[in-house]
Design a protein around this nucleic acid. Structure first.
Lengths: 181, 181
DNA sequence: TATTGTTTTCAAAACCTATTGAAAGGAATA
DNA sequence: TATTCCTTTCAATAGGTTTTGAAAACAATA
């Protein structure tokens, strides 16, 4: 962003945003592009991204597409220009909701389904057992039940939160605050 | 866990747990060891881990230590045995709290501090500007302010949640439910 | 102190994921 | 249709992380 007077703040933020993402299983470049677009005051095209972050056309293309698929950036167009431009979602809460929803769908749902299957497998085995061994099965099964219940509660909390957000976040913290006192 | 009658459920769960962790920036083996210990009905030693997951002594040592540092597993000892044994935290909510706390400390705090610095940098630059350019600075700065506010709220929510957990989670969902209706 | 059992370390190797760059594919314009 | 401009694709490569395995360090016992 050498055009703005805030080049150094941009550079700093983009770099750290990428580093953080990398430790959360999201590619550094993808996160850097996202940060670049989040800070930009106008839509940028592929060449802008290539220039500013010094990445190849291939990488820019792949990562921009991934970001569009995630729903974190949008494609836009400009009159009289064939190029595609991109701009980032600016509402931080919307961004958060999108990320959580996508990661749940892609990465949490598979493990939940697996645990449900494990649950069923144990039930099946259990039916073949007798006496104490059968009791052990219940203790063992609890480990799976616990995780499933946990996922369920988190799920509910998140759904409520994203609904409640529309009513502003103040009331949420207030409501929770009362429970603790 | 070839000793239990539930070998196949174990295997399945351990594998998927590892895969999920990998896509969240946590090493597959570390997560697999964690899953193995979470399911185990008695503490296991390094050799147990090596045998059951087919990993080298070095890898077992490194990953067990990392898990202890995270606070997800505990070292234990057995009378008349020099070996160290390990067992996993069994309370899923405690596990969650530990993970969130650690990741916040290690990976979220650094970016928050960076954003605060960016904020300050912009203020400094802004003081040198005049007129419209100065107004632009405010619009630009908002991007950073938004993220900081977001982090703050999430932080508060999480703190409340981990306190409220002791009083049961029912009241939380109830309180949030009221806001939505 | 020497012996033995156990854990840690770390350079080399294996493994995995992301990037590059050039070529192919598309789509708008003349 | 030919040309031009832009985007996508993908095999090769670069870059980064994890694991291995053997040696060193450590600690308990005799």
């Amino acid at each position: 962003m050498s055009e703005t007077p805030f080049a150094s703040a941009d550079t700093l933020f983009i770099r750290r945003w990428g580093e953080m993402a990398a430790s959360w299983g999201i590619s550094r470049t993808m996160a850097e592009i996202h940060a670049l677009l989040y800070l930009a005051t106008k839509p940028l095209c592929t060449d802008d991204v290539m220039d500013q972050l010094a990445v190849s056309r291939g990488s820019a293309s792949i990562n921009l597409r991934a970001l569009v698929n995630w729903g974190l950036i949008y494609r836009t167009h400009q009159r009289g220009d064939r190029k595609e431009y991109f701009e980032a979602e600016q509402d931080v809460w919307q961004m958060f909701e999108t990320i959580v929803r996508e990661r749940r769908r892609r990465e949490v749902q598979p493990i939940v389904e697996t645990i449900e299957r494990c649950h069923a497998m144990i039930d099946e085995e259990k039916s073949k057992l007798r006496g104490n061994t059968r009791k052990d099965a219940d203790a063992y099964k609890k480990r799976f039940t616990d995780i499933l219940e946990f996922c369920d509660t988190i799920n509910t909390l998140f759904n409520l939160m994203s609904k409640a957000r529309q009513a502003g976040l103040g009331p949420i913290t207030k409501a929770l605050g009362k429970l603790v006192r």
